[in-house]
Amino acid sequence: MLVSVYRFNPEVDSEPYMQDFALDIPQNRDLMVLDVLAMLKESDDSLSYRRSCREGVCGSDGVNMNGRNGLACTTPLSTVVKGDKLKIRPLPGLPVIRDLIVDMGDFFKQYEKVKPYLINNDEPPKQERLQSPEDREKLDGLYECILCGCCSTACPSFWWNPDKFVGPAGLLQAYRFLADSRDTAKEERLSELKDPFSVFRCRGIMNCVSVCPKGLNPTRAIGHIRNMLLNRIA
């Protein structure tokens, strides 16, 4: 198999380039892309990429594989390799630090902007705050986000305005707290999202939904936020 990897080390390279590796892939089992990266690193230890849990829950190894964002550790070669070729690039739209490692600063700034924490200034009870299973169910499909950045870096609106458009990942979290029956800052949250950029740059093209490795649906969450904003002025 021919693996082509994006390489850039600012200490050595004046500009990025694609490096080709010919790899013998064992046929007896379906390797993950992360296994391939590990094989490459054994032959060239200067190749840098992030990884940790290797089971799709930590969100470290979001990369672009043959043009599609995803987690290297849960993407089997069988689903991504075309014509015995695999191109691995860093997540698009963010500055590259080195090789497959991108600077996620903008991404996390947008996450922080939505105040991704429960706000409830009432004195908490001695035990837990009660929540019905129905109310809790509203958080399903929202809280599972692993902040890998695959969605936001697949979103053209985020590419153009990473400093102003919150992006699908941040908005999913914004809605996770808007939808939480225990949160009391709905009005405050909404008023911070009403500008023309934060939410409304979403054009509903659903790239985020198509790449999310956890099968989440940020576009739907964004739709809910938009409806809440509309109901607020209606």
């Binding site: 009403k194 950029f197 939410v199 409304f200």
Partner: peptide
């Protein structure tokens, strides 16, 4: 036109 994204959207 518009004072917010909501109004832009409605317009």
């Amino acid at each position: 036109m518009g004072v917010s994204g909501v109004i832009d959207w409605v317009i």
